[in-house]
Design a protein around this nucleic acid. Structure first.
Lengths: 307, 307
DNA sequence: TTGTTGACATGCCGTATTGATATGGATAGA
DNA sequence: TCTATCCATATCAATACGGCATGTCAACAA
């Protein structure tokens, strides 16, 4: 039982004649006669009653006809599905993003454009910090991540540079820092700092700490928060001041004022898109393609150590 | 996309290696390599990631794997189904029988044996008199019928002789005919007869009438009934006496006594199995085969004019 | 009856597909 | 570095497939 034989047989069944079917499928009549006979021999069942003016289906032939139509139908559906899958028009992409960076207009635009253009792809966005993202990328439960990396060279991963963040100072609006903004970090020596845990985003933490070490500045931390929103909420509540990625300022927060400091702006915080090298998902690569288009082809995954 | 390619691909997917798959399906490795490549080209999608120690499935490959398993599964199910259908082990048979002849032990045994032996065949029995059976056989809404025929030669039909009925006299138990049974038809000249309509079973009616014409006997009909049960019920009610097929006596009826009369026994009423010649249903032919076995091969559809 | 027509079956031949063998190239592990 | 393993390629033989010419049969018309 071959697909060719089934499609021939369908033509014969539909036209009620081998000759008519041969004209329909553009194959000589003897070829059809033989293929139908081979099909009958293969199935061990007579499918056609041969008459002088055509053929009619036996009981088995009628049964096969219905099945064959479905089978061929299924084949074409598989074809189109695989084609769409191969072009990344359907399928699934899971993307990890820090909530902070969902606020960045370019990132938000990227996600919107992807969803518009590849509407049939199940596009799942998970709010995750850099550490968990890396883990999940490596174990395969995440297709791509928007995160901080200490280097563009990640074993087993490919990367694209999205943009350069830097650091800003977040202070309570009702504080003296808001009234008279500091110009240098040294002025903050006796300030109360709200700080993040290293564990949830070690890359970010280490980067900031390395920068401060170079500046020989050591913040006096009075309070820890799990993520940026928590930290900013604490700042808004007047519990202290905080050092945050500049992306945070894209999302105004009542009671918080963002301040630029030369020494903080100098801390380069490159934001990356990363994915497993062995991940062949076309839907994912369409996302990469969109990144290349939206963020420019400049940020290739070349050695460029950013720090 | 061919069945062969799909089964090869499944083996490759399951073993994770083209070489291992080639050993599994007993085909040389280069052949598998080529077939997989042809499948990829045909689908326009990469299905495998080739590594030094085997292969892994791409996203499209995983999707195809699942589909292919189902597709091949379906193919084998069609095979087995068609095979069973071809052997008449599944399918449908509709059989027309006069209720009267369901009482004949041999007929009842035939139906029981068929149902036992071909349990998966939907075996539908319709209570129909000879006339409607013929009609439905010809139009194709009935596969076979157990009925009276005026000849074994029926255009478009094939037949088997089942048995020879004859006629009997049915009289009310509480009548003078029961008390002193008649020996000759002539004694019934002044009797009240319950009779059937010609329309519902013309063959039976004409046969009986022809027999009586030869005997130069004309019954005095006082009452008509649609079928044998009705007629016998009227006899039981004392409305008159009736001429019935001998098969009726196989089913005792309270208040009715069956009487043999030489002149009635002499009327041969052959009972036939009939089916459309062009009906190729294996399930039907199994029924015919069973008839040949149960009723003996004597009653072939040869010219034998019965009357 | 007889000739014609239309439809399925059969035999033969050229071409395409499939599989086997031999061999090459790449990679992981010793 | 060497070896074993696995995938890819080239070539050849067997098989499958389709096209053409022809045969056979049944239905239809004269």
């Amino acid at each position: 039982m071959e697909f060719r034989q089934l499609s021939y047989f369908i033509a014969v069944a539909e036209t009620g004649s081998i000759s008519a079917a041969s004209r329909q499928v553009h194959v000589a009549q003897p070829a059809l006669t033989r293929q139908v006979r081979l099909l009958e021999e293969d199935l061990g069942t007579r499918l056609l009653e041969r008459h002088a003016r055509g053929v009619s289906l036996t009981v088995a032939g009628q049964a096969l006809f219905e099945e064959a139509v479905q089978l061929l139908d299924r084949r074409t559906r598989i074809r189109t599905r695989l084609s769409a899958l191969g072009q990344g028009l359907i399928g699934k992409v899971s993307l990890g993003v820090t909530v902070t960076h969902l606020w960045v207009p370019e990132v938000a635009a990227l996600l919107r454009r992807y969803r518009d253009r590849y509407a049939k792809v199940a596009f799942e966005v998970f709010p995750l910090l850099s550490g968990p993202q890396l883990e999940r990328l490596r174990e395969g439960s995440l297709d791509a991540g928007i995160l901080y990396l200490d280097s563009a060279e990640q074993p087993g991963l490919e990367t694209r540079l999205l943009q350069h963040d830097h650091l800003m100072l977040a202070v309570p609006e009702a504080s003296r820092w808001s009234a008279s903004p500091p110009c240098r970090l040294a002025e903050l020596a006796d300030a109360d700092f709200v700080w993040g845990f290293r564990s949830v985003s070690p890359v970010y933490y280490d980067r900031v700490m390395a920068h401060f070490a170079r500046l020989e500045f050591e913040p006096r931390v009075v309070q820890y928060g799990a993520d940026n929103i928590t930290i900013l909420s604490m700042v808004a509540a007047g519990l202290g001041i905080a050092i945050v990625p500049s992306a945070s300022s894209a999302h105004p927060m009542p009671g918080v004022r963002f301040l630029h400091l030369e020494e903080l702006t100098a801390c380069d915080m490159p934001l990356w898109l990363a994915w497993r090298s062995s991940n062949d998902s076309p839907a994912l690569h369409n996302l990469v393609g969109l990144v290349d288009k939206v963020f420019g082809e400049g940020g290739v995954s070349s050695p460029g150590q950013a720090g």
